[in-house]
Amino acid sequence: MGLKKFVATRIVTMFGVLMVTLLLTISLVGSNMDTILKQGVAYQVRTEITSDPTIASSFSSTEEFDAYIQNQIELATEVLGLDEPWYSPQRIGLTMYKILLLDFGNATFLTSDAGSPDVREIIFEKLPRTILLFTTATIIISVIGIFLGALSGSKVGSVVDRITSSFAIISSSFPVWWIGMIMIFVFAFMYQIFPARATPPIPASDPNYFFSLLYHMTLPLITIVMIGFGAWAYLVRNFMVGIMQEDFIMSKKVIGISKKKIIYTHALKNAAPPIVTILALSLSGSLGGAIITEAVFDWPGMGRLYFEAITVMDLPVIIGATYILTVFFLVSIFIADLLYGYFDPRVRTA
């Protein structure tokens, strides 16, 4: 199998997954969504008619007027295709097509900071902040993790190795959001260094907004890094332990190449494919975990948006956010696959 075919099958699979996800989401929230849409149409038609007093005065009795409104609502529902049940193929197809083109409609309750109810605008306002926080965190985590992992992997059984391994095991059993609560308790309550809420108090238009955002980002960032890097170091360590036992490393040692050079050029290079893959996966994985972490720190990103949308059952936002999260997840899995194929030709030909 050549690289082209490999990429092509991957793309097809990913697209298939995206469709399945969409279909699942829509079928899960479809009936609720339908009621909300119908109510929305009814409300819109009613306000349109009642805002024009000339229409109301042209009717002799309220019953007639009501019947007229009801008629208009039914007409509007029919025009929009809402008279069919939500699970009819046309409606599901239409909804999926709209979502594919990032047309999520209007949110029921939530608005963007600027006050717009358009779900796409809301999401694109929050997305950069989530990416800012979690990409920064992942980069820091991977740098610390690779360095520590390589160090402890080359000296199995040493103090560094033991500390790294036990820290990895212990830190992985603590939920990030709980550590977040503790961090807030320590650094916002006991020592008032960082703010308890990560949402900057000044409006987004303020020139200092970005710096304020960075300051408010510190506490969540420290927390995510603290919980994340141990597991990373442990993974890299295990790869390194495997590679350091390989014959080619042994022979390099015998030739007399310095140990440092062996670790950081030859061994790490060989551990690269799995490490890069995991980097791509953990980036997307962190976006999923963002929901809870952002809820704790009140970080104004996608995760908190998702949390708020669930609390008030704002379905268009839920669907839109799920879609965007899935796209990110799939794109990073895709990139991980490609990178793996690029680094390790065996995958392509197998």
Binding site: L28, T322, L330
Partner: peptide, 18 residues
């Protein structure tokens, strides 16, 4: 592969809500 690529947490949330 399909199940693997589904984002677990958002789905768990939607499932438990709906």
């Amino acid at each position: 592969d399909v199940i693997y690529a589904l984002p677990a947490l958002p789905f768990l949330i939607i499932l438990s809500v709906t």
